[in-house]
């Protein structure tokens, strides 16, 4: 099937300390979808995303990315893979002392030589595209400001711009709005939806709040104790599924 971008089969991850964080997880990600991963804290959501771009090495199973087996890679192959996969994080992970523009330009590190990048010789087209990416997330006027002087929401938008400059085919988002207030949170999610719909970039996103899931996800998977327990449309998560995913005593919290 052509529209399957990422095919994950029987993926296991066992950490060095013996924690079995992912147990035989299998699912597909289709091109252009906005897939949301839900689950309790510690259920393995971050581990799943990190196995995809090899921030953690998968233990066993198989990951196919555009029909290419990426389960076990050498370090230079990992770098090649990461150029095609953007990632944003809960705590933005920008370089605080650098300017916004310089942070965005780091999205081009993968295709810039070591010395050139150290002396900030990025190509003219990369500089132009960096500004376009900033424009896309609505903070072009902040280009010259130091990254740590921006608000949380703005920093996350810089992180999105950095990932966009990579020209990724897929964007991993690990709880991108978990440290933002509700209003900012929606603005960041709206930008993610925008790049999903306008640029056609596939998004795999970990989220905590079901209300956000219903609003933004085109499809949902749920993890519980490292196992896949749900796969389907956000509308199908009813009361009984909710209990199954989050435990019997859980109550849904709304954030608007």
């Amino acid at each position: 099937m052509d529209d399957i971008q990422l095919k994950i089969s029987n993926l296991n991850k066992v950490y060095d300390n013996g924690v079995h964080a992912l147990k035989n997880v299998s699912f597909n990600v289709k091109k252009g979808e906005f897939l949301v991963v839900i689950g309790l804290s510690g259920s393995g959501k971050s581990t799943l995303l990190r196995c995809i771009n090899h921030l953690h090495a998968p233990t066993s199973g198989q990951i196919l990315f555009e029909n290419r087996d990426i389960t076990h890679l050498s370090s230079s192959e990992i770098r090649g893979l990461r150029k095609e996969i953007g990632m944003i994080f809960q705590h933005f992970n920008l370089i605080p002392r650098h300017s916004v523009l310089s942070n965005v330009l780091m999205g081009a590190l993968g295709r810039t030589g070591t010395l050139n990048s150290i002396f900030k010789f990025f190509s003219e087209s990369d500089r132009k595209r960096a500004l376009e990416c900033l424009n896309l997330v609505g903070i072009r006027e902040k280009a010259a400001i130091r990254a740590d002087q921006l608000s949380g929401g703005q920093q996350q938008r810089v992180a999105i711009a950095r990932a966009l400059l990579q020209g990724p085919k897929i964007l991993l988002a690990d709880e991108p709005v978990a440290s933002l207030d509700p209003a900012t949170c929606h603005s960041v999610m709206d930008y993610l939806r925008k790049i999903n719909q306008e640029l056609g970039i596939t998004i795999v996103c970990n989220l905590h709040f079901l209300s956000l899931v219903r609003q933004y996800a085109t499809r949902v998977i749920a993890l519980r104790n490292g196992e896949l327990v749900f796969e389907g449309s956000p509308q199908n998560i009813d009361e009984s599924w909710f209990r199954k995913i989050y435990g019997e005593s859980a109550k849904e919290v709304h954030i608007n």
């Binding site: 893979l81 990461r82 990632m87 933005f92 780091m106 993968g110 992180a159 950095r162």
Partner: peptide, 11 residues
């Protein structure tokens, strides 16, 4: 954090 941020760009 910043290390993972930079690593994930393919640096």
């Amino acid at each position: 954090g910043p290390i993972e941020g930079i690593q994930s760009t393919g640096a």
